[in-house]
Design a protein around this nucleic acid. Structure first.
Lengths: 178, 178
DNA sequence: GGACCATACCTCGTCATCGAGGTATAGCGG
DNA sequence: CCGCTATACCTCGATGACGAGGTATGGTCC
């Protein structure tokens, strides 16, 4: 997820580590802050995988800044990841939102964007609950526990909003009668 | 999060590992499945911390089943964790839902339950976005990118539903005029 | 009687993440 | 000129999650 976010941000413009840190803090920080000890090793991994290069600019600031640039392999890796996200990217909301944040980078490929949205649509379409009576998912109305009822109500509201948005956006991506 | 969920399920009734696995699969599995390699070591950790004990029942099934019972220390740890969840439990939706799933275990302490809900209320009350124009959070209407707009719309719908539920539930927990 | 699946448990190596700590410089207020 | 904060980067040890693999038995289907 971190890897995806780093590649996604760098696709827009080269950044140095500190700027990246602040972009990441805005994107996911209020929910799950990332620490230096996570970010810098991740940058190193991407660098040694040849997905980005760093250019040292001395002078400007306190420590020598390393401006990070995506390589062609890095761009390819980003686009590939966006085209074929793995199942966790689809089901886990945090990861899914990271995909959404950068899905625009598949600009020239509306069909690929639509395919990703369809996968999320299929996932949301499956009947699912947090609690089961045998095989049958238990609905909010059947639950006495007010906290568990809350979970189900909130999840339902989210799913509804997302389905509406997914349908609208898919219509826009796939124009014409279907 | 796994620790919390295990303790929470065992508070209801003793279970063996396999049953636990299926309960966990229902609770968080559609979003983020937990593997054996995560579950069994987690059980061992809890056991060596004295939070649960296992009683071997031979015979019933294929492998000797270890029925897991919560100890008093385990119950205390669960209730304590529910009373004072850490910040990530409040902000990360996956973790927050796990707290909600078991908050009922603080049955006799409506004030403690209300205090936890208030923390979530405060978190949701902070103005937050995924994207910032300098310091100012950017609203859904200002975003051109349809995917990023979707993120903001979905997040807003979720927040709204959750705020409504939080207020209702807090009113029920704290009766009388305020 | 053989294939296969569900039940039930476990280990191991690998990897990502985290928090705590460290090292600098620049700039500002007092 | 001292302390503080922001900028900017890095390391290290511990933890925990993961997937792949292994070991059984019991039941069902054909």
């Amino acid at each position: 997820m971190l890897k995806l976010a780093i590649l996604g941000f760098l696709h827009d413009r080269p950044l140095h580590g500190y700027q990246l840190r602040r972009h990441l803090a805005a994107l996911t920080g209020h929910v799950r802050p990332i620490s230096d000890g996570t970010l810098y090793p991740a940058i190193k991994r991407l660098e040694s995988d040849g997905l980005l290069v760093r250019e040292t600019e001395p002078g400007t600031a306190a420590a020598p800044r390393h401006t990070l640039h995506l390589t062609e392999a890095g761009q390819a890796a980003l686009l590939d990841r966006l085209r074929t996200p793995d199942d966790l990217d689809i089901s886990d909301e945090n990861r899914w939102f990271t995909v959404l944040a950068f899905l625009r980078h598949l600009d020239g490929e509306p069909a690929a964007q639509a395919a990703v949205l369809r996968r999320r649509l299929a996932f949301l379409g499956e009947p699912a609950s947090f609690f089961y009576d045998g095989e049958r998912p238990v609905g909010a109305e059947e639950v006495d526990d007010p906290f568990r009822r809350g979970m189900l109500l909130i999840a339902r509201a989210t799913t509804r909003a997302e389905l509406a948005w997914l349908r609208d956006t898919l219509d826009a991506l796939e124009p014409g009668p279907r």
